[in-house]
Write a protein that binds this DNA or RNA. Structure first.
Length: 397
DNA sequence: ATAATAGCTATACGTGAGGG
DNA sequence: CCCTCACGTATAGCTATTAT
């Protein structure tokens, strides 16, 4: 008779031995989900009880609050800080957290309580997320259910080992959080110093220690050339979705340029070209395309590149700086507040104080050094996450 | 009464029509 | 050609309705 595979992890703290036990969650956990007080009664939403939705399970703050009456007259249920929260519906399906706050939950959240070590269970379910989602959610709207979660089996060691593993993994999580904090601080530093540079509160010296020439007032059009080439076959079509200077937010609009596509509807964008959508520039939606290929984008974007009089790297920082976004916002035209735009022909007429080419290069190099630092921390974060993933694969059965 | 699902609503941005 | 407005489409996440 073939012996069943032993439930022993590959990697283990030396003081522990013996097999783990496979247990269905329904046997050792208590489950409940919440509800939503009817939205027709506005009064329900005036209290002081945090109302936690599936998008809030990781947060320590929520933006909706309900009162005691709402709690009584709906299925909303109270959870405590430290409870395991499991997101059932929508885009967050399968997310697990240890609640940072006490509050009421809606029916998109399943609260799980257990006498086992809850940090261990939390770590275990987080790790299982991908396989759970892949197994139970196909197409359309992703909905898990309490029924599904109850049937999930998890292998448990005795409590002391659970505790040790959970503590160890929490320490790794802490390290990741610290690195993320460091990254955030670096980004803040970059933002602050960028503002100071562009306001000339900080000035660089040239390589001989001499001051650079005074900044000169120039029209932006002095440095840029618009690219108006119509779409080309054989290059992919991107919907840029430049949002707060991020491109592309997701690649969901990337596809082949098809036979039926009209070239007139698109413009060509080369590597390192800048692009903005007149409608969204005032929010900072301007970006340089750094991919290695030429692409087709909607003709409603304005595409331009930097001529030899300026440093493209410098303008990459300059045009997306806080000061400039403020300026675009001020200069935007249009009758309705939410429809205000900055058109290219206005953009190139903007007069700004611009440093000499040499100083531009100096500034660009300084800022890209900070970017490299941020990238370095980011790499560490990814590495640590990879390290944790590797550990999880070996520490769990 | 509770659980689970289908469908709704708010939001956000891209795109097309039409007027100046 | 420039500009404005309205609409199309996708998404996130909530909630009303249905099923148990």
């Amino acid at each position: 008779m073939q012996k069943e595979k032993q439930l022993v992890p590959k990697l283990r703290f030396s003081e522990f031995e013996g097999e783990w036990e496979k247990i269905k969650l329904e046997k050792i956990c208590k489950f409940f989900s919440g509800g939503t007080p009817t939205s027709s009664n506005k009064n329900f939403y005036t209290g002081s009880i945090p109302f936690i939705g599936s998008g809030n399970i990781f947060d320590s703050k929520v933006d909706k609050y309900i009162n005691e009456d709402a709690l009584k007259s709906s299925s909303a249920k109270l959870v405590e800080e430290g409870d395991i929260l499991y997101a059932l519906y929508g885009a967050n399906s399968g997310d697990v957290s240890i609640s940072k706050i006490a509050g009421a939950i809606n029916q998109a959240i399943l609260c799980i309580r257990t006498e086992e070590n809850k940090n261990f269970l939390y770590q275990r379910l987080s790790y299982k997320k991908t396989s759970i989602v892949n197994t139970y959610l196909q197409g359309g709207q992703g909905n898990l259910s309490a029924k599904i979660v109850k049937k999930i089996s998890v292998n448990f060691p005795p409590l002391p080992e659970q505790q040790k593993i959970a503590d160890f993994l929490s320490a790794v999580d802490n390290r990741i959080q610290n690195l993320e904090k460091k990254k955030e601080l670096l980004e803040q530093y970059k933002k602050g110093i960028t503002q100071k540079i562009f306001k000339q509160e900080i000035r660089f010296k040239d390589d001989d220690g001499k001051a650079f020439p005074e900044w000169e007032e120039k029209k932006l059009g002095y440095y840029f050339v618009e690219r108006k080439e119509k779409g080309l076959e054989n290059y992919p079509l991107y919907s840029l979705t430049i949002e707060d200077g991020v491109i592309p937010k997701s690649k969901r609009y990337e596809r082949e340029f098809l036979v039926g596509d009209t070239k007139d509807a698109y413009k060509v964008m080369y590597k390192n070209d800048f692009a903005f959508n007149p409608m969204n520039l005032r929010f900072g939606a301007l970006k340089r395309f750094k991919g290695d290929i030429m692409i087709n984008v909607s003709k409603y974007y304005n595409i331009f590149y930097c001529n030899e009089k300026g440093s493209a790297n410098f303008f990459d920082y300059y045009l997306t700086s806080y000061n400039m976004i403020q300026y675009y916002n001020k200069m935007a035209t249009g009758t309705l507040e939410e429809k205000k735009r900055v058109h290219y022909h206005e953009f190139i007429k903007f007069k700004k104080l611009i440093p000499s080419l040499k100083e531009q290069i100096k500034i660009a190099n300084f800022l890209s050094a900070i970017d490299k630092n941020i990238e370095l921390v980011n790499t560490k974060i990814e590495q640590t996450k990879g390290y944790k993933k590797g550990l999880l694969q070996q520490m769990f059965v």
